[in-house]
Simulated scan of single mutants.
Amino acid sequence: MAVFLDDFRLRERFRGEVKEVQRRKYSLLHGVSNLFILDTSESMDGEGFIQMKEAYLSMIEERMTYIGLFTIRARVILISDGRPTTLDDSDSKCDQHTEGDHSLLGSIAYESRGGKLLNPPEARAFAKYSLCMMIAAEIIGEVPSTSCSIDDVKNILLSSGPQCDITEHDVENVVEILNNRRAYEMFVYRNDDHLEHEVYSERNESLLAPGTRVRRGPNWHYRNQDSNGPGTVTGHWHREGWIYVEWDTGMRFPYEYVNDSHQENVIIPCDEPRILRRENIAVGCLVKRGPDWKWGDQDGGEGNIGAVYRVKEDAVYVRWSNGIKSNYRFGYGGKYDLAVW
């Protein structure tokens, strides 16, 4: 559903258009909302207004919803030249700006979760974004969980047959989505403390421990959230009896775990190792002491094995078989406390 913010007359016109859509029984009112903010200030007169209208009409043709394992949230789409109106602005229309203030608009996009700054000619390509999301959701299990490249995506698309409607720009968008996949997770975390509390806390020893490898169970009903592959328990959710799983695609979701009654569970433990593609280390890997280990017997003694349940830049979080959890250097300052087992 698109909301047209403008003066009273335009709002009334929009209400009439919505009623007409409902009368024709179109499905535009389902799925995620798009909130359009249209800049109708004087600096947008003339060519600027024409570009805004064309961009708006291109975008409203697209309907967004939840796509595969990606959560598509309501979007705020601002169409503006980015030039603030001041009290000193003249009524004269002779000075028209056809170029926007990219500095202001870029800062707004940067501060937004998954924000993008588009020029008018890119509006129609943006309207195809759901197609790119569908492609990304389909192939996410076949590409590295980090540093996905254009060649990675092209090779997969070529192997699946001709893609007549896929442009070079679409491929770039797919790569961008895959490399920014965490922006499309089910939940938004305010900061690292909130993330630690919700995703990585160990609350109940009767639940699967962080680092445990898992797969979908016989009672699975979450479609393709797992991309039909294995994952790793990262912690216990705040809801009693629920665990958090990071699938090998890098996507994280909470699931209920009914003790050890495997026939009732949506998640069951497995012995499948984490397969690294381009990653040096990843959640689910087994590790041992590395060349720069200096942490005594935190690991329970030399030769013991731990499981990675979180990777954060050059730090790796491990749960050892003795139950101790801590984070270690893996490339930070050129030091490696761990080695992949």
Rank of each mutant, 00 (worst) to 15 (best):
R190A: 11
T98E: 13
D151W: 12
I275D: 13
L195N: 10
D297S: 13
Y257A: 06
D292K: 08
R190L: 12
S201T: 14
F36W: 06
F187Y: 08
E196V: 02
K116T: 00
R223N: 08
E246Q: 15
K325Q: 12
I140Q: 10
A74N: 11
N34V: 14
T71P: 01
V199D: 03
A209P: 14
V32C: 11
I50P: 00
E62T: 07
M134R: 11
G301K: 11
V21M: 07
V245S: 10
H221G: 11
W320P: 05
R24I: 01
G235S: 03
A123W: 04
I37G: 04
T40H: 09
K116M: 08
Q96V: 09
T86D: 04
G333F: 00
N173D: 14
L338K: 02
I139F: 07
L87V: 08
M133F: 05
P218N: 06
S27R: 09
D297K: 12
R182C: 06
G217L: 06
V18Y: 12
F8E: 13
E205L: 15
I108H: 08
G161V: 08
N180V: 06
E176C: 05
H169F: 11
T71H: 15
K116Q: 06
N280P: 07
N228I: 04
M1Q: 02
S92M: 04
D165I: 10
I275K: 13
S206E: 13
V175E: 12
S107F: 03
L158A: 15
S145C: 08
T86M: 02
A307K: 14
W341I: 05
N180K: 10
Y56K: 01
A136W: 12
K53N: 09
I77D: 04
N204M: 09
L29M: 06
F4N: 03
G250M: 02
